[in-house]
């Protein structure tokens, strides 16, 4: 079920997106990312982001801030930076009723299990965002959250895994 505040936000972003499109001065210029598209990226696990959205997120600090505000507003849970250790790699995070754990695969040394577990909540997160220390946001679809938990295999070279292991990153579940 969609929360009323979500509906209001969605309506607002659609309106802003329409305004963006109408007011775009020159069709030959790079397409400006609309709020509607940003909203889908932040909320819809089935949304496949266009390449120019990804490119814009990597180059536009304003767009990343917009996305961060959107996520902060609609997050199911924030798992803040790990305070206990100032160095080394993070293997476990906890916050707002969820835990994240990283377990290396014994079968494939270049792969790691990400375990997401709801401790005392009924919510089912469908997206995970990791904000790196340089404000880069990594996105991961959680397509198998059932009975309070999900398990996702990640490759060692995945950017999101490096971000999850970074003590200076924070996590948002949506």
């Amino acid at each position: 079920m969609i929360d009323p505040s979500d509906k209001e936000a969605e309506a607002l972003f659609i309106a802003l997106d329409t305004l963006d499109q109408i007011s775009r001065p020159d069709p030959d210029l790079p397409r400006k990312i609309g709020f509607n598209e940003l909203y889908a990226y932040a909320n819809d696990p089935d949304h496949s982001p266009a390449s120019d959205l990804i490119a814009a997120l990597s180059t536009s600090l304003d767009l990343r801030r917009d996305l961060k505000r959107l996520l902060d507003k609609q997050a199911l849970a924030h798992l803040p930076r790990v305070a206990a250790a100032s160095s080394g790699e993070v293997t476990e995070r906890e916050g707002d009723g969820f835990t994240l754990r990283l377990k290396p695969s014994k079968a494939q040394e270049d792969q790691v299990y990400l375990l997401i577990q709801a401790l005392d909540r009924d919510d089912s997160p469908r997206l995970l965002f990791v904000e790196d220390e340089d404000a880069t946001l990594h996105r991961l679809v959680i397509d198998d959250f059932l009975e309070g938990e999900a398990q996702i295999l990640l490759n060692l070279q995945d950017g999101i895994l490096k971000a999850l292991r970074n003590v200076k990153s924070s996590v948002i579940l949506r």
């Binding site: 377990k103 494939q108 059932l146 398990q151």
Partner: peptide
């Protein structure tokens, strides 16, 4: 191709050709 014991904390998975993509039958 292969069966490997995993950490008891993780769920058993079925993967294709050693990739990180778990098949839908994993549950």
């Amino acid at each position: 191709q292969r069966i490997t014991k995993e950490d008891p904390d993780v769920r058993s998975v079925v993967c294709v050709n050693g990739t990180a993509k778990a098949l839908p039958i994993s549950r």
